[in-house]
Design a protein around this nucleic acid. Structure first.
Lengths: 222, 222
DNA sequence: CGCCTCATTGATTCTACTCAATTCGGGTGG
DNA sequence: CCACCCGAATTGAGTAGAATCAATGAGGCG
């Protein structure tokens, strides 16, 4: 897709940084080269891999939504990311998965079991760096923002990742939002209600959110 | 140093994952190849780079400690990581720095301004993946653990990164610990005091911590 | 020695959590 | 088509834990 990536020099014509957007499609192409790869369909709440399992594949989401999370011994859960169509996940720093991955709703996933060659590894770097920036930004949200700010940040993020439509389909239940934001489901629910009362959004069913005042939400989340 | 890295195939002899530890020394060697690179000494609290600046170098810490952080508009701060000697930082997903980097105490830093070639990029991937795992683990601490658990996790982490000595020198003030853990300095201080009263540690000056019951702290942090 | 910053401790407030009771909405079967 | 069911979501009341505000204490440096 993005020919820019075919030539490693194109990454950093003048500096150390990668000018291009992290491009999972390029990684896909690289992985696809010379072989077929299965597309697996997972039903809602199916586990894709578990913490501690041997990491032996990369995954690219064709459709659906996936949650990546970690657990404490007593069951407390932190969702570190939601993956949507087009995104690549499953890369790890060593031979083991450090997280759980589960389909939130029905999801089509292409699985790449080939060993990682140097070229693909290099293509993967921008994807990993993008994930790193995301995780670090999420740290700021969770570490330093109030419940309202967190929920606003979540809604804005989801909106932008879906191409900023006026009405937004959330694939995940409140419990996932809560575990993503470091809150409880009650606090998430109350915050949605507060936003509704303030006219910032309308709810058409619990998971269909019409964003009425995106700018106000964006301001809140900063 | 680590010849393992000289051959890209060695990364993943059988699977998709990187078997080796992320090895900044290998990255350093790769960067060093065919050129001199300046070592700069920064005084305490000096800025190394700022958010929004053009990312044009990689940095490797020879000695000292560095904080990487992000700010909200009103000044709230989240420290996403502390870097110690040997670690590489400053890689970004695009042409801009997304974070601030500051020396906490006097720090020697080797700066690599060379454009990133494919080989170095590939070597950098394990380092980036390690940073990603760290950030995601930190999300769990901040999102789902109590103040005591967070401080315990911080102490155990610092201890292990310094080679698990009985007495631990903290380079950073309470305000940095607080901004790293998503707490206030008062809460951090009270938690240290509580641990002292419980006999888990002794304080020899505010930044010198003798870990008395490491196992109890480790248990707390899980 | 004295100053200034950093750290500790105390009193109080407030946000988000916990526990509990409804209500809503999507799916199923009569 | 409607009634019912069940999990998910909402709402309410009370509480706990960390933040805030304020005062005091300790260490390092000129």
């Amino acid at each position: 897709m993005n020919a820019h990536f075919a030539n490693p020099k194109a990454w950093s014509p003048g500096g150390i940084a990668f000018r291009s957007e992290a491009d999972p499609v390029a990684v896909l192409s690289s992985l696809d080269k010379g072989g077929q790869h299965p597309t697996v369909t997972y039903a809602a709440n199916c586990e894709i891999y578990a913490q501690g399992e041997r990491a032996s594949a990369l995954y690219r989401l064709s459709f659906g939504t996936v949650r990546l999370y970690r657990l404490l011994a007593d069951g407390r859960r932190q969702i570190s990311a939601f993956c949507v169509a087009g995104e690549v996940f499953g890369f790890e720093a060593d031979a083991e998965h450090h997280f759980f991955a589960e389909a939130i709703c029905a999801a089509g996933i292409r699985v790449y079991r080939k060993p990682l060659d140097g070229e693909t590894a290099a293509l993967l770097l921008p994807v990993a760096l993008k994930a790193l920036v995301r995780a670090q930004e999420h740290l700021l949200v969770i570490g330093r923002q109030s419940a309202s700010e967190r929920v606003a940040a979540f809604l804005i993020d989801m909106m932008e990742r879906q191409g900023a439509p006026p009405t937004l389909e959330l694939a995940m239940p409140r419990s996932d939002i809560a575990d993503y934001l470091g809150l409880t489901i009650e606090t998430v629910s109350r915050t949605f209600s507060k936003f509704r009362e303030r006219g910032l959004l309308r709810l058409h069913g619990a998971r269909t959110v019409e964003i009425v005042k995106a700018e106000a939400l964006r301001q809140l989340s900063k």
